[in-house]
């Protein structure tokens, strides 16, 4: 046909400006304040670890996709985000090669063996953290005091739990808030994490449902489990990986529910498991395992929280 030169496709004919790349870039941008805080408190080593983690994550993705003869999708920035999160979940003293192994595990096993972006059933960065913690428990829990001297220390939650270093005193809440305490590179500065979280909320990359529900659950349960001691609330919320986990890891799209109701259930589950592990488990910290466990429950939660469809009313006689 003479005029037949137009594109024909099924409607809709226009698309929004949203893209996977834009979303992942937003997450990476939101992680920057915490990265700066990590470098500020733990020195340049935090930066080297981050660069190695990101570099290996991206390189593993390219290698894996070439190997599987699939289109290379590193430009969607999701591997960068995973790399950043892995670095944020290790102490600044960790040998560089260990974080490289973590990054490779996250991308090759947790992400691409299950189908790549969107198909990982657990958070790749947390999977990597779990593997590293199980493989090198000592290196993964060698904390240093922020500052140039790199004095060995412990985390506020460990002090609170009394598992080790009984001679240490709890840091004050202000130090906790800005991040001037021992811990993983990206988890200590509540302030920086909250700035990132607000940015993600503003950009509508995440909804408030998972972070707020998760944090509130932990706050309330810490109050209850501690025998109604109010001082436990700020420590349990600000110390450890709760803010990092609640804002950046539990909100991972692939491994959290899609429905609003499901997200609330998921977050309550995360909060419950976190507090139970912290109070009654063997570890001082429970954020990563609780999120991993709830990741596994996500398909089930999605199935049982199908929203009520519009039009589900009875037909009038």
């Amino acid at each position: 046909m003479e005029n037949s030169r137009f594109l024909v496709s099924s409607s809709p004919h226009i698309r929004s400006g949203e893209s996977t790349r834009r979303i992942m870039m937003d997450v990476a941008i939101a992680l920057l304040p915490a990265l700066f805080a990590g470098i500020w408190f733990f020195g340049l080593r935090a930066l080297w670890l981050t660069l190695v983690a990101v570099g290996f994550a991206v390189a593993s993705e390219i290698a894996m996709q070439k190997l599987m003869k699939r289109p290379v999708t590193v430009s969607d920035f999701s591997a960068v985000v995973t790399g950043l999160l892995i670095a944020f979940n290790v102490p600044s003293t960790l040998p560089l090669w260990m974080v490289a192994i973590g990054a490779m595990f996250a991308i090759v096993i947790a992400k691409h063996c299950f189908g790549g972006v969107g198909h990982n059933f657990i958070n790749p960065a947390l999977a990597a953290r779990a593997v590293l913690l199980a493989s090198w428990p000592v290196d993964m829990t060698s904390w240093v005091q922020p500052g140039v001297d790199a004095v060995a220390t412990t985390t506020p939650l460990a002090i609170l739990k009394g598992t080790e270093a009984v001679n240490q005193v709890l840091p004050n809440v202000m130090d906790l808030f800005v991040g001037n305490v021992g811990g993983c590179i990206g988890e200590t500065s509540a302030l920086a994490l909250l700035i990132g979280g607000l940015y993600l909320l503003y950009r509508r990359v995440i909804s408030y449902r998972i972070p707020v529900t998760y944090i509130a659950t932990v706050g309330i349960l810490a109050f209850v489990f501690s025998g109604f001691d109010l001082t436990y609330i700020p420590y349990h919320i600000l110390a450890g990986g709760l803010l990092l986990g609640a804002i950046f890891m539990a909100t991972d799209y692939s491994s959290s529910p899609m429905t609003a109701k499901g997200q609330v259930i998921f977050a309550i589950g995360c909060g419950l498991l976190t507090t139970v592990i912290r109070f009654y488990g063997g570890y001082p910290e429970g954020v990563s395992y609780s999120i991993l466990l709830m990741n596994i429950a996500t398909p089930l939660i999605d199935r049982f929280t199908l929203p009520r469809k519009f039009g589900g009313v009875k037909k009038s006689a």
């Binding site: 226009i14 893209s19 996977t20 972006v117 799209y253 899609m258 999605d302 199908l306």
Partner: peptide
């Protein structure tokens, strides 16, 4: 205006669930 970008993996962001006026998935 009409260029249709190529589809990539679903990232399960849930935006489609949010906007569906019939509350479907």
């Amino acid at each position: 205006e009409a260029r249709l970008p190529e589809a990539s993996n679903c990232i399960r962001c849930g935006k489609c669930v949010e906007v569906c006026p019939i509350n479907l998935m």
